[in-house]
Amino acid sequence: MPKVTLRVNGREVSGEVEGRTLLVQFLRESLGMTGTHVGCDTSQCGACTVHVNGLQVKSCTTFAMDVDGAEVTTIEGMANADGSLSVIQQAFQDHHGLQCGFCTPGMVMAAAALLKDNPKPSEAEIRHHLEGNICRCTGYHNIVKAILAASGQDVSAIAAE
């Protein structure tokens, strides 16, 4: 079986994979990093979102072999170095941007990719960017609000606690 070597959250890892092994399977099953989730089999839900070489990708639609040598960031790598929540993670907690937590890793990864390219997105830009991420719990209100807040924008006018 072919072998792949990549850096996940700054740590070099390698393992044997089949041609059909998906990046998300490699992360969850070979590396035991279960923070990245699988919510569908048609590349629609975004629960599996990670960053590959800084770009937001769906790890359920990426073969592990294709990311040989790449730099991969997952939800496990998003907290600050001292273990505290990053600005985006903290905003999700502060604004109740998650309920069951299943979509959350994908939402945080999508938000991080958006804010990197567009540090002060509008509400419409955020909603548009989340097109590929489904949440069944929150009705999106507090996710959008959390991302606005994480970008440093004032959210006090948006209804809620």
């Binding site: 279960t34 923070g35 997952t74 496990e76 998003m78 907690q93 109740h96 998650l98 069951c100 937590g101």
Partner: peptide, 21 residues
């Protein structure tokens, strides 16, 4: 009180433990 959720920390850091995990 609008207490922030303590469960969020594990969900936000990839440390939830769902059945498939």
């Amino acid at each position: 009180a609008a207490t922030k959720r303590r469960e969020d920390v594990r969900f936000l850091t990839g440390n939830g433990r769902y059945t498939d995990d």
